[in-house]
Structure formats: C-alpha cells, structure tokens
Design a protein around this nucleic acid. Structure first.
Lengths: 199, 199
DNA sequence: GTCTATATTCTGATAGAC
DNA sequence: GTCTATCAGAATATAGAC
C-alpha cells in the first residue's frame, strides 16, 4: 500500500541529492541556489532543510558517496599478473566514470568549495584510489614487467589521461566505449613500458 | 615625473584583471563578487565599471588572453622531424602551463560560466591549440615514425595528461620541472609508438 | 514533512558629486 | 577616475502554522 499523505521522507531525500548532482555539475556549486534545487524537486526551499543541515553538506555528501562507490567498485586482485591488473584498472576507470559524468565532474571541480575538514576527507579517499593504481605499477616494476621512471608520477599521468575521456566521449559517436577502452589500454600499456602482448 | 592625482587608468586596469585572475582561480567565478575584486585592488566596487562593462566580460577577457598567449607561444616548426616537434610540444605545454596555473585553472574550469557566444569563441581557440598537436601526430604517422590508433583520441589523451601536471607539481618539491618534463616526454614518446631514441 | 513568511546579508550594476 | 549612496533583486537559513 502506498503512502497517502504529504510524508515523503524516503523519496524526497534521494530526489534532492539527484537534483543537486545535476545542477551542481551543470552550473557549479556556487552558482546554484537552494531555491533552484527545491524547484527541481518540486518542494519549497525551506523543506530542503529537513534533509540537509546546509548547502555545503549536500556537496560533501555527493562527493563522499561518489568516492566511496568508486573505491568499493575498483576491486584489484593482487594475485593476478600486474599487466592484467593494469588492463582491468584502465577499462574499469573509463567505464565507471563514463556512467556517472555529473558525479565525476563535481568530484574534480568543486574541491575548492569544500571547507577544510571536508576537503581533507575527500582528498584522503582520492589518494586511496590513486594508491590502487600505484600498487599495480609497483608490483609490475618489482617483477620487471613494467619500466616506469616514477610510480607516483605515472599514476597521476594515467589517471588524468583516463579521466579526460569524460570531457569528449559521448555514447553514439564515432567510437564505441569498447573501442575507446581498447585505445587507452594500448596507450597505457606502452606508457609503462609493457610492450609484450601476452600475460 | 609620476602622476600626482587620482587618475590611474594605466595601472588600475591590469590590477583589476590580476585580482580577478587570482580570485576566480581560488574561489570560482560564481563565488567571487565584484566587491571582493574591488577590495583586493583597493578601490570601490563602482570604479570597476570604468574598466569592464560587466563581470562576464572580465572572465572572457582572462580566458581569451590566456588562449591567445598560448597560441602565440606554441611555435610548431613543420620542417622539423615529427619526433622533435612532439618533444618540443610536450616540454612547451608543461612549462607554459606551469608558469600560469591560475589562468590554466580558469580556462579549464569556468567554461560553463561563459555565455554561449563567448563559449564558442574560447572553444575555437582551444581546438586550434589541439590542432597543433594533432598535425604533429598526423605527420609522424605519415612518415611511419609514430604508430597511433587515432590522432584525435591521442591528442586529447596527451593534452589531458600534460595539463594534469598542474594539479600536483610544485616547484621546490621532490622533482625539478626539467625532470618532470623528461618523464612526461618519455611517456608520450612511448604512447605514440616511437620507441627509438634517435631523431 | 511541507508550507508561507521573513530576517539578514549580499549581489551586480547605476547615478551623481567631486 | 574614484567616490558614496542606492536600486532591485536574490542568497542562505530560520520560525511557526498546518
């Protein structure tokens, strides 16, 4: 039996977050007003404050959820060969980020709008994600599969390159997502000095 | 002889642009008020409007100046070997962007705050810069020096990777700028399938 | 839980004195 | 060219009715 009255705490909360995600991504956190979010959801501005203490909390929750989801999904298996782990990481990063462009955009662009303690929290999560790739590179170097000058620099280079896909790739264009993942994997494989085609 | 009165049109204008650059980069265009800019310069808010018709013009002028400077500085010589041109491009991009982090940040982050015709103008300039790299890759493929699956995709991948340096590199840290340029050049050279060390 | 109404502060931009 | 003063509107957040 559906609810019958004006009580919608189970549905309004998610809708507020969804509206904030879309609007923050399109116009930027500072440019979006609480009234705009409320209008998108179909409630009055005052009603938002039943779900979030303030605008800043709305932003940091979106960013934290995104980073936590990312970390839960990445699933690196350190028993596999480094080159296999690296290929999985490259394809995963492109695919995961492609599915949530708004969250990715916010997570990378709105860091400067976070208050210091919130910034520190999100940065810790980001560094943890970077650590996944760095450990793969370290493992490959230890086995002699990769020839990388600096694992940290290479980590940043690879992640910047992969995240950049979101700025130009759109489904239905000249290239399929699979093909894009193939091309980036080829580039990354070469970058780390793993020229062999085998495992 | 120095000027003696309250007339400072030759100095206030640049100071306004400098203040806007710093503040927009730090807090974001939408989050910065004209009063904040005026305070940084040391004038009242109304005085700003002797130098700019509105806030939007201030933003687009900063972005246009940056892109025009970038295009004037890139200087590709198509008589040189593609691998030489590519190395110069990589080192140039990192060096140029390192010297003006605020302008780079604004040019990449505030596109969504541009009105449509301003956005179109800046995008044209950006595509022109990307074209410089794309032509280098095309030339290298035509000569068989590079083995690149897709020149456009590779262009975007390389530029994203190189621009990403600004997010982590700071002078005086573990690595010198020269060393960073060396490492990125090695990665790019491998990415495009140019494994030989000679010209 | 949502509403209306409002307190308070800030916004971009303009007018007119000097 | 810069100032003070101001307009008209929008911002975040809160109070209290229902």
């Amino acid at each position: 039996m559906a609810r019958t009255t004006g009580s919608h705490s189970d549905i309004t909360g998610p809708r507020i977050r969804a509206a904030a995600l879309t609007l923050f991504a399109r116009y930027g956190f500072a440019a979006v007003s609480m009234r705009q979010i409320a209008k998108e959801v179909g409630v009055q501005a005052g009603a938002l404050y039943n779900y979030t203490p303030d605008k800043q909390s709305l932003l940091v929750e979106l960013m934290r959820d995104h980073m936590v989801e990312l970390l839960a999904a990445v699933q690196d298996d350190d028993r596999a060969a480094p080159v296999v782990r690296l290929e999985r990481f490259v394809r995963f990063h492109i695919g995961f980020h492609h599915e949530r462009p708004d969250a990715v955009f916010i997570a990378y662009m709105e860091l400067r709008n976070l208050e210091p303690e919130n910034f520190a929290e999100i940065e810790t999560l980001r560094r943890r994600y970077e650590g996944v790739l760095e450990r793969i590179l370290d493992a490959g170097m230890a086995r002699g599969d990769f020839a990388v000058a600096d694992a940290k620099v290479t980590t940043w280079a690879v992640i910047a390159m992969l995240t950049g896909v979101n700025t130009w790739f759109r489904s239905g264009g000249r290239l399929s997502l699979d093909r894009v993942q193939d091309q980036y994997w080829q580039m990354v494989r070469r970058m780390v000095g793993s020229v062999g085609g085998s495992v």
